[in-house]
């Protein structure tokens, strides 16, 4: 499916399940999303990490609502904790199957988002691995000068933010030197098509899913 339509679909479904409680819909969406990810050959290790990393949040919500409130309610607890998994698995359906550059191009071409926004976000995403390296390097630089910075030390993040600000300025310059001008139209060398087939897929997923959310508890 077209990345922008996929994004809108995820957005609508996420909003819908946060308004209407439906455990049936939550479980169905999680199941479908996982089937989709498996079909797209996402490595099982990656899926496992995804599911396990959201476990603390889901578990906290469940335990709080089931045991530590005035009126414990297992249905509400299950509903809200499964909601976290709906969000995670739906977002994974986009982020793990669509390269960031394709998504940015789609936002620009199909949704007509300002290219400054699309490419700014993309450039920032490309900086993420660098940021991780930076954090490790800052810690090492600290230890080399007798300053032990734990992972919750404000100095570590202050320095990381300083580097990020510096990168942001350089990034804006980098875009400018490669011909980018705000508000000036750009040509399309790599087109991201938005076909009738994409709309059909979108509708055939959205309508039953919305039905499920509205009709089932």
């Amino acid at each position: 499916m077209n990345p922008s339509l996929k994004f809108i679909l995820i957005l609508i479904l996420s909003l819908a399940i946060s308004i209407k409680m439906s455990l049936t819909a939550n479980c169905t969406l999680i199941g479908l999303a996982l089937c989709y990810l498996v079909a797209k050959r996402i490595p099982s290790k990656r899926l496992l990490v995804l599911l396990l990393s959201s476990l603390p949040a889901a578990l906290t919500v469940f335990l709080t609502l089931n045991f530590f409130t005035d009126q414990p309610n297992t249905y509400v607890a299950l509903n809200l904790s499964s909601r976290i998994y709906v969000y995670v698995s739906l977002i994974a359906c986009l982020s793990l199957t669509t390269p960031a550059s394709t998504f940015a191009r789609s936002l620009e071409q199909n949704l007509h988002l300002p290219s400054k926004f699309a490419y700014g976000v993309l450039a920032a995403l490309n900086l993420l691995p660098q940021m991780r390296d930076n954090i490790l390097r800052i810690r090492a630089a600290g230890m080399m000068r007798g300053l032990y910075l734990s992972f919750w030390s404000p100095v570590l993040y202050f320095k990381a933010i300083l580097l990020a600000l510096n990168s942001a300025e350089n990034l804006a310059w980098a875009m400018q030197t490669h011909g980018f001008k705000e508000g000036v139209s750009r040509s399309t060398i790599i087109a991201i098509p938005l076909r009738q087939k994409d709309w059909l897929e979108f509708a055939s997923l959205l309508i039953p899913a919305m039905g499920l959310i509205v009709l089932f508890k």
Binding site: N126, N170, L171, T177, H178, G179, R186, I190
Partner: peptide, 18 residues
């Protein structure tokens, strides 16, 4: 510090589209 995209091919395309 002079690249917006992750690969040289994407950066070349980005610049030419601009």
């Amino acid at each position: 510090e002079q690249f917006t995209m992750a690969t040289a091919r994407d950066e070349l395309i980005f610049a030419l589209e601009n």
